[in-house]
Design a protein around this nucleic acid. Sequence first.
DNA 1: ACCGGCATGTAACGGGTTACATGATTTT
DNA 2: AAAATCATGTAACCCGTTACATGCCGGT
Lengths: 181, 181
Amino acid sequence: MDSKTLCLGALMLGDASGYEIKKLFEEGPFSYFHQSSFGSIYPALGKLMAEGLVTCDEHAQEGRPDKKVYSLTDKGRAAFRKALSINPQRDRIRSESMYMLFFAHLLDTGHVRKVYDGYLEGFRQNIECLDGLSSDGISPSRQFVRGFGRTFYEAAVKYMEENRHMLLPEDEAPKAKGDKT
Amino acid sequence: MDSKTLCLGALMLGDASGYEIKKLFEEGPFSYFHQSSFGSIYPALGKLMAEGLVTCDEHAQEGRPDKKVYSLTDKGRAAFRKALSINPQRDRIRSESMYMLFFAHLLDTGHVRKVYDGYLEGFRQNIECLDGLSSDGISPSRQFVRGFGRTFYEAAVKYMEENRHMLLPEDEAPKAKGDKT
DNA sequence: ACCGGCATGTAACGGGTTACATGATTTT
DNA sequence: AAAATCATGTAACCCGTTACATGCCGGT
């Protein structure tokens, strides 16, 4: 999915500036299945302007650059719908952490533990973040996607909690501290 | 994760040619969390050779290019371990299908159905593929990662089967064909 | 005092995907 | 007869990330 389509979609949720669009991908509704950075958003918005797919409303501000709020045009909405009407290719997963854990037996236990806990923590944070989103008046589509993300993250946390011993057996031992073994 | 590290990891599983490495990412043990293409594998192998991290054994063949089988050197194994000792950044999910389904209410029902079924089918195929892998003598690390993939795909299939109505309500109706409603 | 947030933008760099080039053999 | 598999490799292109440039305001 190219940056332009990503921006069009963001604007479907309401007018926004480049800065605000980035937040949608960082903490907002898109954060669970996409991301974007300034270096791709600003140029994308420029191109969309040139193509007449968005308009821009400049709000002068003191002490900081003007805030440029973009809005979709009818042409933009049509272009967005067209962009989504292609058949998406299969998702390509790309997990550095999993690649690393695949080779956990070659690595220092301390390192594996750090990666493991960090990965788990990331999933937990995503769940918290999902919990923090308001569900007022959102479309069934959005609810569906949110639920999907939730399902995934919860399954991941559960699996990692239950199967920690496979990669970190020694972490399981110190359960009873006064035992007579 | 850069292509060179990806190739080193592939060779940790055994000597292989570029062609075979690609298959590891397409159908093999890595297919669940990474991928790679010829355009990145062959140049990566060339660089690894130049750096002395792998050696190459050329097998002459009739009617097709010589098969170049690569093996890790000690230096290569050390480099691999070092590459994995950094702290991986958080996984970045990138799902075109989810992005599309997020906006399902804007799209033609037939298209949504096609995307939905295609997506689901992809997950089912991944599960089948996992079932087809032999578990003989694989390390706990590999078992862990495999289990993780399985957990994810099964949760995804279950969620999509149970919540289809959220995006495709009309598909639910024709359940009882002789009812008296 | 310093860091994080707000706010926009550019440029280099890196790297991966895609397409191209070649060609025999096996399967459908 | 066509398509897929085996097998390697190059090159252009795209495009995204990262770092840089600028600057104020509010909180610690």
